[in-house]
Amino acid sequence: MAVDSTTEGSTASPTSDDSELVGDGGVNVVDQSGSEPPTDSIVGTADDSIVREIGHDEFDPVGTLILVLIYMAILLGMWVFMYFVEFLGRGVTVVG
């Protein structure tokens, strides 16, 4: 059966349930001893290297926040740069 958000539910996992151990803080740690080795020649096998299952409540996307802040900092810096170069540095360009 095809897997999708409406058919799979939030319990879906790329590994079978009996291969998981519960680690500290409620994060599932995957025991890889029985899983097949990573297959480097196959596309889309990042799941094979999962070392822990992180659920919705345990996931804190702090790295995303850092990247978004970097993006906004670049945007702000470029805006300030443009303001000085294109507006303060030139005469009036649009009249009327």
């Binding site: 897997v3 999708d4 799979e8 939030s10 790329p14 196959i42 096998t45 799941d47 919705h56 996931f59």
Partner: peptide, 14 residues
């Protein structure tokens, strides 16, 4: 198994 086509469910579903 030419490719791993499994798509897991979202963390926060609909």
């Amino acid at each position: 198994r030419p490719v791993d086509e499994f798509l897991p469910a979202p963390l926060s579903g609909p």
